[in-house]
């Protein structure tokens, strides 16, 4: 029950204070009482028990994704380094002298 689900706003009905959102292909109607003034079509929102709780800040999401990319690259670089060191330390590469 407690998880909130990212979705994208497809259309807004200001009068009813609802929006149609797309959650990975599933379309449904949600309440937008808490974000009615700001929300726009195309926004990413977090859905929780049938209401949009807020608008997801794309810039911050992108920033996180970029940071993770860097951490992955660092890990892969470290792994490459280790592989090179290991094979350097292994004379003849197979079985030794």
């Amino acid at each position: 029950m407690c998880l909130s689900i990212p979705s994208q706003v497809i259309s807004i009905d200001k009068e009813k204070c609802t929006a149609i959102v797309d959650t990975l292909g599933v379309k449904r109607e949600v309440g937008i009482d808490f974000i009615a003034d700001e929300v726009k079509v195309g926004d990413f929102v977090l859905i929780h028990i049938g209401y949009a709780m807020n608008i997801i800040d794309e810039e911050y999401a992108k920033e996180s994704i970029k940071l993770y990319q860097e951490i992955i690259e660092k890990m892969e670089e470290d792994e490459r380094q280790r592989m090179i060191e290991e094979s350097d330390n292994c004379p003849g590469g197979a079985g030794g002298a």
Partner: peptide, 23 residues
């Protein structure tokens, strides 16, 4: 950015592994 990114990027096994290394 696509909606999918908000799911897959934050469940990515490689990222989890890299973060585990950092931790």
């Amino acid at each position: 950015m696509e909606l999918r990114d908000l799911y897959v990027r934050f469940r990515d096994p490689k990222t989890i592994k890299a973060l585990a290394k950092e931790i």
